[in-house]
C-alpha cells in the first residue's frame, strides 16, 4: 500500500483570499521559517487528480511513498510538529551503502527520544521524480526537532556522513527538501495502522 504527499509552492504575490480558500480546501501544513527547499506547504494525503481552483499554486511536487518501516509510539498524538525530509540517494550508490543508510536513519529514534512517531519510505512515483526517500517524524514541540534532533551526536556524528560532501561515504545529493509545519493530529498514524 502506498500513500501520497506533496510539497506545494505558491506563486509570487499569491492572492491572500485565494490562499485562505486553498488552506480551507485541503489539509495543508504551512511550513515554518527555517524550512529549506520545499515551498510553502506540505499536503499529506493528496488525492489525484488535484482539485480545480489552484491558480495561485506555482508547483506541486508530488511523491508516492512505499513504507519501509516506522513506529506509531503515540497513536493519540495531538501535535505539534510534523517534519518531512525528501532526499535523493545518488543512482550510483552501492546497494550495501543504501541499506546501511536506511538502517542508520531508522536507528535515530532509539537515540533521540524526542522523535515520537516516524516513517521511512521509498519514493515509488511518479516517474521522473527526483526524490528516492522520505524521512518523516512527529514531535511534541519544535525544540524536539531543532534541538534534540539537530544537535544529537547521533545525527551530526553518524547520520550526516551520508549527506556530507566532505565525507567519503556521502551518497545523498546535497539538494534536499527539509520542511516542517504545525499540526494538531498525527499525519503518520494513517500510514502506520
Amino acid at each position: 500500500m502506498s500513500r501520497k504527499l506533496a510539497l506545494v509552492t505558491l506563486v509570487e504575490g499569491a492572492d491572500p483570499g485565494r490562499v485562505t480558500e486553498l488552506e480551507m480546501a485541503a489539509v495543508l501544513g504551512r511550513h515554518l521559517p527555517g524550512t529549506v527547499g520545499g515551498g510553502h506547504y506540505t499536503w499529506d494525503g493528496i488525492d489525484d487528480p488535484i482539485p480545480p481552483g489552484f491558480e495561485d499554486v506555482a508547483d506541486i511536487d508530488l511523491v508516492e511513498l512505499s513504507l519501509i518501516d516506522g513506529s506509531l509510539a503515540d497513536p493519540e498524538f495531538a501535535g505539534e510538529i510534523k517534519r518531512t525530509l525528501l532526499l535523493r540517494v545518488e543512482p550510483d550508490a552501492p546497494a550495501e551503502s543504501v541499506a546501511a543508510f536506511e538502517r542508520d536513519l531508522m536507528a535515530m529514534p532509539d537515540h533521540i527520544p524526542a522523535i515520537v512517531n516516524w516513517t521511512l519510505s521509498r519514493v515509488v512515483g511518479p516517474s521522473g521524480t527526483r526524490w528516492t526517500h522520505s524521512w518523516e517524524q512527529e514531535y511534541y514541540a519544535l525544540d524536539g526537532l531543532k534541538v534534540d534532533y539537530m544537535m544529537s551526536p547521533h545525527h551530526w556524528g553518524l547520520i550526516d556522513g551520508w549527506f556530507d560532501p566532505e565525507m567519503p561515504r556521502q551518497i545523498v545529493d546535497l539538494e534536499l527538501a527539509h520542511v516542517y509545519h504545525p499540526t494538531d493530529r498525527s499525519v503518520l498514524a494513517a500510514a502506520l495502522v
Binding site: 539537530m150 551530526w156 550526516d160 556530507d164 560532501p165 566532505e166
Partner: peptide, 9 residues
C-alpha cells in the same frame, strides 16, 4: 560543527 558543515555544503 553545523556552521562548518553548512558552509562546506
Amino acid at each position: 560543527w553545523w556552521a562548518m558543515r553548512g558552509a562546506a555544503g
